[in-house]
Nucleic acid binder design. Structure first.
Length: 932
RNA sequence: GCUCGGAUGGUGGAAUUGGUAGACACGCCGGACUUAAAAUCCUGUGGGCAUUUGCCCGUGCGGGUUCAAGUCCCGCUCCGAGUACCA
């Protein structure tokens, strides 16, 4: 007696996927080089910060899409660069280090290992030889080097690009700064003699006002809880983006990046990239360009002049007072003795307000009269000068001319303090609110009377310029980005100090490595953690001391896409040849939450590196797709108050219940695993249940963000173990359009898994033996195949990954109905499917008689129209727009022939009701509509 | 407030330039196999009325354009995201 062992009986994804994972790794199947005649294509994922929690199913969504696209492009004959790495500097590892004393590099290393393990399970076709980590010295050496270039450059508005500081210095030596037109904070003019007489210190102070990376006292977002400053995009609603801690304004000496210099190019460059309107709009708003003019107001009985910026010079005759920011430098000088105390009190109160308080207080109007008056530049009238915290020190000039009739904030301020409101608009009622539209005719305004806003603005600017009162000006909301952090786990600066002046470390001494410290906390004097390092702990040190700040999180991520092109280069950050070959990222996939952070900074650095000739493109990401967020689907059980009884969803309304989050692994199709639940936690071991009629306990659900505390986190690993990576890949795509955010729900995953099993059966007989036929394919199989080829190509070209999955399902359903086991047909199908489900396709490819791994060099099948040509079309026939019947007619029929055939048709008579139609519309091949 | 998305069966979603609304999948109903269950396979499945054939309604709401509207235009409602004293 012996039992017959059936080989390959079922689709055993565990064996198959392990086998191919190993094969790809051992053969370096996805290694990519530049030595090829193929055209290049660069597909990039936003690299992750390796957090301790690992990946949940939301993370790989974008990675799967980009992997499918990369594999598709390879099959189309492109040389595809598809790398992955880690943004591995950051706060969580450091916070953990503070708590445990463990070096953040250890945690980081462990987290990376976990991420890698999880990613490997999903079968990504990354070239891992190109992996980068922002926290590795080999990488941050070049981050430091780029910083040096920024330090050594200024922005010249004439050449409209970054130029070397040495050029500027030569100009200063020859002509001073009078002829210089640069982006600068320097407001004083000096001659060549002045310059040459300055001390080294004075010279450097001036140069700092020109450098693209510079040291300056600036108002920063200080977060006491994190012990560091934050960039504007890292502050959300007045609290830190990470951790939600309060943020206050503080004047500190900080490194900043003169991103303002690039404001205009960052704006116009948006027109050259294929990104969503939403992201482009966010960047445009962030840059906040506004056009208007500057205007000087003389202060009465003083030599001082206050400059304001306004976009509405046409309303200048409506000015009835002025408001300065409490931090405005002239406030103390102009305040009269009578108001000195009140002003001092107001300033103090304003400075104590955190950003959050100030935002929460928007409706609370506050301000204080200074006692001083300004002279209206046209009417000569005296107007009061106030201070108020609705005027921001950091925008424009920190002062506004208040036009209550045309600006709601000025209006509210005037009402609150009972100040004059002049109406300078003809026939507009301003008794209730300011009139902010630009469509009124100007009145009571001398030379502007009778003009509409547009021409009045033009005329006003002309007149202001003629009289030398100011000039036309463009303002940007974008502020320079603070570039230092008082933290440990970031890039050290390649900077040392001598007499408190910063100097750059020579290239030969890079990288400046992170020194060991005893604790990851600030010193007792409030110096950053690096101040704890002994001199000997630095791999290089010079001058009085090294820089103690580290770079912010966005430093390393602003150029990583360049390093992937040439990751091992020891003499350059990227070679020109390789940067020229790979060029822009053709497709970038990632979240939209980086709209005003990473995506803006990366564009800034790219433009700078372009200006300096290191690369030959000035936009990094030609096309970008933002994947939607995957939300968690939480499950709830309902405990009856003060009991250990739980009641099922449909009956909970009869009781007073408390919903309790239950781990989603204990729930299948909303039905609770009761025994599992009892074993989950000791306090539930004696739980009792009031169930549905069929004896099951049904849980309630809610869509929320995925988080550990809600027990709704789904890791990809569990699903790979249960269904396989190919199923997971296809299911994540099948969920819906990539860009849309959606709740995670495993309800439909069986459907996708069944599809793969059905596919498997196309290659096997009922006993499970390989069963393939090598004859010429049937007409209908060819039709099915080519229909699929066409759809797949169209769908991939428009990144419609979800419809792609259904195309395959339809194809396999049809081939199953046709009992198709044809090698030629199945080969083409497998090639098309391999980007989505690479493991099973590799396996089936070998069964088709091919060499292992060669599917990756195959060509994506070409669509041939001829296989879809049919002899007849089933025309839907509509009467008055309503589809009533179908009529099979030859494809070759002309519109007239179709019309005739329809009108003569037996079944159509019923609908014609003997009438002759008013009109017959025939769209050949598509539809017929008869209007009665 | 402003800007940008979105709303289609019980559910996720499809309909690419205006041309058969609901593809594909889940779920559910019924059936086959089985001692039974699971798995698998077959059938049905937008709602309502008729129950063979058929008819009416139907893509958030109200209008409009068109032979024809989920798709275009105007006006709303709701949901999501971003942003907010930016002069």
């Amino acid at each position: 007696m012996h039992t017959k062992i059936k080989v390959n009986m079922e689709y055993d994804f565990r064996v198959i996927e392990n086998k191919w994972r190993k094969f790809w790794a051992e053969n370096k199947t996805f290694k990519v080089t530049e030595e090829t005649q193929k055209p290049k294509y660069y597909v990039l994922d936003m690299f992750p910060y390796p957090s301790g929690a690992g990946l949940h199913v939301g993370h790989p969504l974008g990675y799967i899409a980009s992997d499918i696209y990369s594999r598709y492009k390879r099959l189309q004959g492109f040389n595809v660069l598809h790398p992955m790495g880690y943004d591995s500097f950051g706060l969580p590892a450091e916070q953990y280090a503070i708590q445990t004393g463990q070096h953040p590099s250890i945690t980081t290393e462990q987290n990376i290992a976990r991420y890698r393990e999880q990613m490997d399970k999903i079968g990504f076709s990354y070239d891992w030889d190109r992996e980068v980590r922002t926290s590795s010295p080999e990488y941050y050496k070049w981050t430091q080097w780029i910083f040096k270039q920024l330090f050594d450059c200024y922005y010249d508005n004439r050449t409209n690009k970054a130029e070397r500081i040495s050029q500027l210095v030569s100009e200063f030596q020859l002509n001073g700064n009078v002829q210089v037109n640069a982006c600068t904070d320097c407001e004083t003019n000096f001659t060549a003699e002045d310059w040459n007489s300055y001390s080294e210190q004075r010279k450097e102070e001036i140069l700092q006002e020109y450098r693209l990376a510079y040291l300056a006292d600036s108002w920063v977002n200080w977060c006491p809880a994190l012990g560091t400053v934050l960039a504007n995009d890292e502050v959300v609603n007045g609290v830190s983006e990470r951790g939600g801690h309060p943020v206050e304004q503080k004047l500190m000496r900080q490194w900043s990046m003169r991103i303002k210099a690039y404001a205009e190019r960052l704006l116009t460059g948006l027109e050259t990239v294929d990104w969503t309107d939403s992201i482009k709009d966010q960047q445009r708003n962030w840059i906040g360009k506004s056009q208007g003019c500057s205007l000087q107001f003389k202060i009465d009985e003083s030599n001082l002049q206050i400059e304001v910026f306004t976009t509405r010079p046409d309303t200048v005759y409506g000015v009835s007072f002025m408001v300065l920011a409490p931090e405005h430098p002239y406030v103390d000088q102009i305040t009269t003795a009578e108001y000195a105390t009140a002003i001092a009190d107001y300033k103090k109160a304003a400075s104590l307000k955190t950003e959050r308080d100030r935002q929460a207080d928007v409706k609370n109007i506050s301000g204080q009269f200074t006692g001083a008056f300004a002279v209206h530049p046209f009417s000569g009238e005296k107007v009061q000068i106030w201070i108020g915290d609705y005027v921001l020190a950091s925008y424009g000039t920190g002062a506004v001319m208040a036009v209550p009739c045309g600006d709601q904030r000025d209006y509210d301020f005037a009402k609150h303090f009972n100040l004059e409101i002049k109406n300078i608009f003809a026939s507009v009622d301003i008794s209730e609110a300011a009139y902010t539209e630009k469509d009124a005719v100007i009145a009571n305004s001398d030379f502007l009377n009778g003009l509409d806003a547009k021409s009045a603005i033009k005329k006003a600017i002309e007149t202001i310029e003629e009289k030398g009162l100011g000039k036309g000006k463009t303002n940007y909301r974008l502020r320079d980005a603070v570039f230092s952090r008082q933290r440990y786990w970031g890039e050290p600066f390649p900077v040392y100090y001598k007499n408190e002046l910063p100097y750059l470390v020579d290239d030969a001494n890079l990288p400046i490595e992170l020194p060991e410290v005893d604790k990851y906390l600030p010193t007792e004097d409030g110096e950053p953690p690096l101040a704890r390092a002994e001199k000997s702990a630095w791999n290089f040190s010079q001058g009085d001391r090294m820089e103690f700040n580290t770079m912010p999180g966005w430093a390393g991520s602003s150029w990583y896409f360049l390093r992937y092109m040439d990751p091992k280069n020891e003499i350059e950050f990227v070679s020109k040849e390789k940067a020229d070959y790979w060029n822009q990222v053709d497709l970038y996939i990632g979240g939209s939450e980086h709209a005003t952070g990473h995506l803006l900074y990366a564009r800034f650095w790219t433009k700078f590196l372009f200006d300096q000739g290191y690369i030959s493109f000035d936009e990094p990401f030609a096309k970008m797709i933002n994947q939607g967020m995957i939300l968690g689907r939480s499950s709830f059980v309902y405990r009856i108050k003060d009991s250990i009884k739980f009641v099922t969803l449909s009956k909970k309304k009869d009781f007073d219940v408390t919903p309790i989050h239950v781990d989603i692994s204990l729930v299948d199709n909303d039905k609770l695993d009761i025994e599992g639940f009892k074993a989950w936690r000791p306090e539930f071991s004696q739980a009792e249940f009031i169930c549905e009629e069929d004896g099951s306990y049904v849980c309630g659900t809610e869509v929320e963000k995925m988080s550990k505390s809600k027990y709704n986190v789904q890791t990809p690993d569990e699903l790979v173990d249960k269904f396989g990576a190919d199923t997971l890949r296809m299911y994540e795509m099948f969920l819906g359009p990539l860009e849309q955010s959606k709740p995670w729900d495993t309800k439909g995953i069986n459907g996708v898994h069944n599809f793969l099993r059905k596919l498997w059966r196309l290659f096997h007989d009922q006993e499970g033996n390989v069963f393939l036929v090598d004859e010429s394919p049937t007409k209908e199989a060819l039709k099915t195949l080519h229909k699929t080829i066409k759809k797949m190509t169209d769908d991939l070209d428009r990144f419609s990954f979800n419809t792609g999955v259904s195309n395959f399902m339809i194809c396999v359903n049809e081939l199953t109905d046709q009992k198709c086991h044809n090698k030629a047909i199945l080969s083409e199908l497998i090639i098309m499917l391999s980007p989505y489900a690479p493991h099973i396709c590799e396996e089936l490819w070998v069964k088709l008689g091919n060499d292992a791994g060669t599917i990756n060099e195959a060509r994506f099948p070409a669509f041939k129209e001829e296989y879809l040509v049919e002899a007849s079309v089933a025309y839907p026939i509509s009467f008055n727009g309503k589809m009533r019947m179908k009529l099979e007619l030859p494809t070759t029929y002309s519109a007239q022939e179709v019309e005739q055939a329809v009108l003569e048709n037996q079944d159509a008579q019923k609908w014609l009701e003997g009438k002759s139609p008013k009109k017959v519309i025939v769209v050949p091949g598509k539809i017929v509509n008869i209007v009665l």
